[in-house]
Design a protein around this nucleic acid. Sequence first.
DNA 1: AGCTCATGGCGAG
DNA 2: TCGCCCTGAGCTG
Length: 269
Amino acid sequence: MPEGHTIHRLAADHRDRFADRPVRATSPQGKFADSAALIDGKVLETAEAHGKHLFLGFEGAQWVHIHLGLFGKYTWGAGQAPPATATVRLRLAAPDAYADLRGPTTCALITDAEKQAIHDRLGPDPLRAGDDRGKAWQRISRSRTTVAALLMDQKIVAGVGNVYRAEVLFRHGIDPYRPGRDLTRSEWDAIWSDLVVLMHEGVRNNRIDTVRPEHTPEAMGRPPRVDDHGGEVYVYRRTGQPCHICGGMIRTAGLAARNLFWCADCQTA
DNA sequence: AGCTCATGGCGAG
DNA sequence: TCGCCCTGAGCTG
């Protein structure tokens, strides 16, 4: 489930369980073994997220940089950790809690300067207080690229993935193929503000819900949604099903190697 | 057992 | 734009 809300939640979970304590670090899978040995037993001082990037700060100004990619996943446990299975890239453990990381695209020990370079190439993040929506607007308003592609570009907005992209465009009635430069400033402001709210709710609930109260299954008298991604959504992975609002058929199309979902009847602006 | 697909992103051409 | 990396679930046979 790795969009930005997942990563910010993971940062908070690391702080809650491990901050200010020494943690054991191992890499049963092996690829991070040398680096794990360097931080093993060190105090975890902080954990933060920028977009889909997670940074675990250990004493001595060393950072573990984690990016889950498409497959990466954390499993958490309480108490003494059981023997790890062979795919665990990184296990962090305290006496009363442990975290297992599997399948990340990136898990690497980096310096302050390397961390800063990652921040520098990421756009503003709706989940980082004080991040400037205007920076994203500067690029969007000058681009001929479709707004759907721009929203997925982490240099422009950090943390939005395929679900939030599809859902926020639906919520604002915006045709995903509209060029960025045809967006108005007030449309962008509304999208950004909506992302701030939706993604904070995503952090809180650890899942993506985007359906307004008046369109929930209970309110609409339709059966509850059952989808393995867990949240209640308007268009994501609902290809061929009727739109919750207009009843039109949800469409899908490939865009930048990902599936795009939208309602062509509602998203005309 | 083997295929396909998934909430990502990178580098080569 | 394509191939590739990482893992696991849910099919198909």
